[in-house]
Simulated scan of single mutants.
Amino acid sequence: MNYTTKDIQKRVDEYISQFKEGYFSPLSLQARLTEEVGELAREVNHRYGEKPKKSSEKEKALEEELGDVIFVLTCFANSLDIDLSEAFEQSMSKIETRDKNRWTRKEGENTNEG
């Protein structure tokens, strides 16, 4: 299934809205996001780094960890009434301008100029 950011935000909001507690506070969501990014980092380190898993540790898919990050990030955005598409557009616009000549381009790649 393919979701737009609007679809993701709506689905998360429909899920969270069924509970009286609603969204956690921004500080709690930041802590949860940090926790989820840490779990992603741990999984990446186990797969690609020098720290193999203990035999007693369960294998987790990177997709699962990335999904957890997306869920909490979406909760964060929704709780603050931030449109993820707009946030992404602002970020890409900044990056495409600031870093347009930072990296070595592949031959024949458009420079997005003019």
Rank of each mutant, 00 (worst) to 15 (best):
A41F: 06
T34G: 11
E63W: 01
Q90N: 10
K58G: 07
G67N: 03
A41G: 12
L40N: 04
K94N: 08
E59S: 13
L66E: 07
K58I: 06
R42T: 08
E14I: 01
K58E: 13
S85M: 09
K106V: 10
V37I: 12
D68C: 05
E36G: 02
E21G: 03
K94M: 14
K100G: 00
Y15Q: 07
E96K: 14
K51L: 02
D13H: 14
A87D: 07
W103T: 10
D68A: 03
L84M: 14
T5Q: 07
T4C: 03
E43I: 06
G67D: 07
T4F: 08
L40G: 01
E59Y: 15
T97E: 15
Q9V: 04
G114L: 15
P52K: 00
E63Y: 02
E21L: 05
I70S: 08
F19C: 03
T34S: 10
G49K: 02
V37E: 02
K54W: 08
T104D: 13
T111A: 10
R32H: 12
L73H: 00
R47Y: 11
T104S: 07
E63D: 11
I70D: 11
R47I: 07
L29V: 06
S79P: 05
E50K: 13
S28F: 12
S25P: 00
V72I: 15
E109R: 10
K53E: 05
A61P: 02
G49V: 00
E43Q: 11
Q9L: 04
A77M: 05
R105F: 06
A77V: 06
S28L: 15
N45K: 02
A87R: 04
G114N: 12
F71W: 09
A61L: 12
G22S: 08
K106D: 01
S17Q: 05
C75P: 10
F71N: 07
I8N: 01
E39L: 06
N2R: 13
D99R: 11
P26E: 06
D68M: 00
K106H: 10
I95V: 15
G67P: 03
A61Q: 04
G108Q: 00
K6R: 13
R47V: 04
P26R: 07
G67A: 13
T34D: 12
V72P: 00
G22H: 02
N78H: 05
R32C: 08
Y48W: 11
Y15K: 13
R102L: 13
S25D: 06
G114M: 10
H46P: 08
K54A: 14
G67Y: 02
G114T: 09
R98C: 08
P26L: 02
F19N: 09
G67S: 11
R102T: 08
L62G: 06
S79Q: 08
V37L: 15
P52G: 05
L66Q: 01
K51F: 02
